[in-house]
Write a protein that binds this DNA or RNA. Structure first.
Lengths: 227, 227
DNA sequence: TGATTTTTCAAACGTATGTTTAAAACATAT
DNA sequence: ATATGTTTTAAACATACGTTTGAAAAATCA
C-alpha cells in the first residue's frame, strides 16, 4: 500500500466501538486491537483520545452538514418567498441523514447512534467542538424552525425544540436495540428510514400542540380538560 | 448519634454526584470524600459500587412507585368504567413525581436527572434491577397508555412511546442545564413543574398525531417511496 | 465491668487506563 | 547507496480505579 491506511482503520474501529459501547467505556486498547494497529498509533496520529472522538465525528458530520445545507437551499428555493413548513423542514433534515453515502450497512444506525451519544454522553469537549464547528447549519435549521412555527412564543419554542431533540436523540441512539425488541416482540422488522418517517409526524404534532399554558393545572382533583 | 448515619451520608453524596456527573465518571473516592467517610465504607455497607447505584435508585424510586400507584388508583376510580384520557394518565405520573417529598430543593431536579441517566447511561445491571423491581407500576402505566390510545396500532404505539420516553428522559436529565441556558438567554426562570406542564401537551399531541403513513410528503422532489 | 459484635480506618492490592519513550522498520528522494 | 523523514513497534510510565485487608476504635450487650 502506497499510503498507510492506519488512520482509516483506527477511525473505522473507533466509530463502531463508540457506537456500541459509548466513549468512556471504549478503551484505546480495544480500538487499536480491533483495528490491528499498535496501541501508540492513536496518540501518534490523533494526539489523544479526545481528538480521536472529534475526528470520528468530523468524518461523517462534515459531509452530512454539507448535504443538509444543500437540502435547505433546495427547500427555500422550491417554495420561494414562503417559509417552508415544519414537516418539510424536519423532512429535509432526516432525508439528508438517510441519503448520506454509507460506509457500511450499519452506517445509518451508527450515524444515528453517535449523534445520540453526542447529546447524551455529554463529553464537554465534544459539545464545544460540535458547536463551533457546525454552528452554521445548526442555526440555519433553528431559523427554519422559527419561521415554521410563528405562532409559538420564544420560550415555548425553546422547550419544544428540546423535546424534539430528546425524542430524536434518544430514539436514534438506541435505534438498533429498539428495533431488535420490536422484532422479537411482534415479529416486525423496521428500517431506520421507517423510524424517521414515524418520528417526523410525532415531532411536528408535538411542536404544533395547543398552547401549553391553556391546559389547566391539577387542583387537588385530577379534573382535566380534554384536549 | 445512636446509629451511624454513614449509610445516609454516602447515599446523599452519591445521589448528587451521580446526578451531576453520571455513574462511570463518579468515583468512590469522590463519593466518600464528599460524604466525609472512609473509602472502604462503601464496600462495607453496600458491597460494591453497582449495589450502591441500585440503592440510590431504590431510595427514591420505591416511594415514587407507591405514589404513582396510588395516583393510578385515584384516576381509575374518578372516571369509573371509562378509560382515563392520555392527558390524565401523563399528568398523574408527572404530578406524582412533582409532589414527592424532597430531600432538598434540588430534589426534583436530581430525581429527574437520575431517571434520565438510568435510560441514557445504560448500566446493564441497573436496567435489570429497575425492570424486575418496578415492573408492576411500569406495565400498569403502559396499560393505561394503551387504553388511552385505542386508535393506534401496536407498532405505532410502541414507537411513539419510545419517542415520549426520549423527550422526557432527555429533557429531564438535563433540566438544570436547559433552565440555566434559558435564564441566561431570555431572562426567564423555569421550575421543573413548568417543564412538566409544557412537556405533557407536547407528548399528548405527538402521541395523537395523524397516522404517520398518511401524512403527505413535501411538494415535488422530496416525495419518497412508501415503506 | 469484660466480652462480643459492629463499624471505622489507613494502607495496600491488582488491574486498567491514556500517554510517552526510544529504538526499529519503512519509505522516499538525492 | 546513502541519507532523511515518517511510521510502527514493544515496553514502560504515571495515574486512577474498585476492592480487600487487618488492626484499631466504637458500640452493644452480658
Amino acid at each position: 500500500m502506497a499510503q498507510s491506511d492506519t488512520v482509516d482503520r483506527i477511525l473505522d474501529a473507533a466509530e463502531e466501538l463508540f457506537a456500541d459501547r459509548g466513549f468512556a467505556e471504549t478503551s484505546l486498547r480495544m480500538i487499536t486491537s480491533r483495528a490491528k494497529v499498535n496501541l501508540a498509533a492513536v496518540n501518534y496520529h490523533f494526539g489523544s483520545k479526545k481528538s480521536l472522538i472529534q475526528a470520528v465525528f468530523a468524518r461523517f458530520l462534515t459531509p452530512f452538514s454539507a448535504t443538509a445545507q444543500a437540502a435547505f437551499d433546495d427547500l427555500e428555493k422550491s417554495c420561494d418567498g414562503k417559509a417552508p413548513t415544519l414537516n418539510q423542514t424536519l423532512r429535509a433534515l432526516t432525508d439528508s441523514a438517510v441519503r448520506m453515502p454509507q460506509r457500511s450497512e450499519r452506517g445509518i444506525a451508527i450515524f444515528m447512534r453517535l449523534l445520540g451519544l453526542a447529546y447524551t454522553q455529554s463529553q464537554g469537549h465534544l459539545r464545544k467542538f460540535l458547536e463551533q464547528e457546525y454552528s452554521e447549519p445548526f442555526s440555519r435549521f433553528m431559523g427554519l424552525l422559527k419561521e415554521a412555527t410563528p405562532e409559538l412564543s420564544a420560550v415555548d419554542r425553546y422547550w419544544r425544540i428540546q423535546f424534539m431533540l430528546g425524542a430524536t436523540a434518544f430514539t436514534m441512539s438506541s435505534n438498533e436495540a429498539l428495533r431488535d425488541i420490536l422484532a422479537n416482540k411482534m415479529g416486525v422488522e423496521t428500517s431506520v428510514q421507517e423510524i424517521a418517517a414515524r418520528l417526523v409526524p410525532f415531532l411536528a404534532a408535538g411542536m404544533q400542540a395547543k398552547d401549553p399554558m391553556l391546559t389547566p393545572m391539577p387542583c387537588d382533583q385530577k379534573s382535566l380538560a380534554v384536549l
